[in-house]
Design a protein around this nucleic acid. Sequence first.
DNA 1: ATGGCCCGTAGAACGGGA
Length: 265
Amino acid sequence: MLPEAELSICSWNVNSLKVRFEQLKALLETQRWDIICLQETKMTDDRFPYEALRGLGYHAFHIGQPTYNGVAILARLDRFQDMKLVQSQLPELDDPQQRFMLAQIDDLLIACAYVPNGQAVDSDKFQYKLNWLDKLHRFLSHSDLCRRPFALLGDFNIAPQDIDVHDAELWRNQVLCTSEERSRFQGLLDLGLTDCFRHVEPLSRVYSWWDYRQLAFQKNKGLRIDHILISQPLVPSLLSCEIVRQARKAEKASDHAPVVARLRR
DNA sequence: ATGGCCCGTAGAACGGGA
């Protein structure tokens, strides 16, 4: 299969684009993914490297704030003609936290989401997370996105099933693994979206996040919380989905690895 | 041993992440 006949879409929580820019640059230069969704850029828009990315052949949309959150969508200039930002926040959510954007890239609709972490089950942040997910579901269910060529990529901060957790008993009812969060993830699938990795790899235990502490990566004590969901019109063209564990081995690596799906174009 | 690490904002520790 010629690469030109493929479309690659990637999601990566960079955990500070300032720290990780050189790693991103190396990935773009070597992998040439067509579309990349970034989470946790942790910078204001005036510091976002639009020009450097253009020099690498990518157009970029970014929404940011100081210190926390921030999401971006990158798309190859040589493969797409028409790129426009459709949404820069979730409707019906009056929120200073920059966690969501939706872009139209030629005939594709691409959403980048940084779902709140939730911190602890008994915290206000957990309720904020559940509400955020409800607002996301509401937005999707009231739109026609799931019937169009649409992909939702991001850090969902949810391990959908026990198979997505290195030690399901240890994480039982912990944040990222509660039934409240998992039922909301399932709610997104029930809209007609498909979890690319699980669709292609029904039984594989591969994770996308490993704690910086306790040598968690070396011991492969991880969770699969970064996902690419695609609408039904795109499912027949899904070729593969891979979690790029190699990136987690880098010096000063993000605690998240990129997830990449390849589709027939 | 319930904390170890990393990042940003600090300009010392602290909030936040997951």
